[in-house]
Design a protein around this nucleic acid. Sequence first.
DNA 1: ATTAAATTGTAGTCGAGGCTACAATTCTGT
DNA 2: ACAGAATTGTAGCCTCGACTACAATTTAAT
Lengths: 139, 139
Amino acid sequence: MTEHAKQSLPHRRTRHDHSTELAEDYVEAIAEISSSDRNCRIVDLAKYFGVSHVTVNRMVGRLQNEGLVSTEPYKPVRLTAKGSRLANRCRERHEIVYQFLLAIGVDPQAAAIDAEGIEHHVSPETLECFVQQTKAKQC
Amino acid sequence: MTEHAKQSLPHRRTRHDHSTELAEDYVEAIAEISSSDRNCRIVDLAKYFGVSHVTVNRMVGRLQNEGLVSTEPYKPVRLTAKGSRLANRCRERHEIVYQFLLAIGVDPQAAAIDAEGIEHHVSPETLECFVQQTKAKQC
DNA sequence: ATTAAATTGTAGTCGAGGCTACAATTCTGT
DNA sequence: ACAGAATTGTAGCCTCGACTACAATTTAAT
Ligand SMILES: [Mn+2]
Ligand SMILES: [Mn+2]
Ligand SMILES: [Mn+2]
Ligand SMILES: [Mn+2]
């Protein structure tokens, strides 16, 4: 650790959050689409994220390299066990952030938008505080 | 607007937040360093963010193109009026997010780290809710 | 005044994440 | 069965944000 690591730690952490963000959103999306549709296709993900199918195609390849999804040419995308576990964790965290924003009075539309970005920067400690606050508000 | 814009709006918004994030963090850092040191140098920013001076150098060039900073070769980096206004807005938003996290019980270290990423995804509506919550807790 | 150190600039590389254009494959309707 | 539509894959391009290695300039020490 360099002398200024303490100073730059928050920004280093933010950069790390961003490096894992897409994988998290992808497995979450694949889980959601798979549960309703039964089959998650490349085009579904392209529509979901608002990007081209080419971008999705390459990202799915990366997720496969990381062991999070399994797919074959021209076949649907499925989550591996590892991918499923990650998806569940992300879905729970996302839901906690979203419900917390609602609980403090943010309107549903803004809460949905903000939660999509915020979720990736919430540490376990902060997440726990969100849970407690949401509970408190519901009493 | 395409047919699925509504579905993909949160992710589009998150991508947009990320596209403006670095400029926001840079002007905020330049303002902070300038206020204590008097002179903000490339190396100061490199240490502050934990990146190489080359990365900073190019980013400062971009900020200059956007009219946020002014600098000359081998000279310190200064904020323009426009850059100063942006820095002030970002500093205020950052502080609100940080104080809010403290108010709901997050420890200072975690709050500092999480706030650095969260701040860029907080809409004006949500920010206002943060302010109200922080006030409420202080009573 | 010279040398050494610090700072800044430049050249060239890399991977991530976006795109368009086009080719290949699979699915669907008649 | 086969033509057309939808889907998926491939080639090639771009910008951003990071890096190393090295050159130029400025600052500091002797
Ligand atoms: Mn999500
Ligand atoms: Mn997200
Ligand atoms: Mn930040
Ligand atoms: Mn972010």
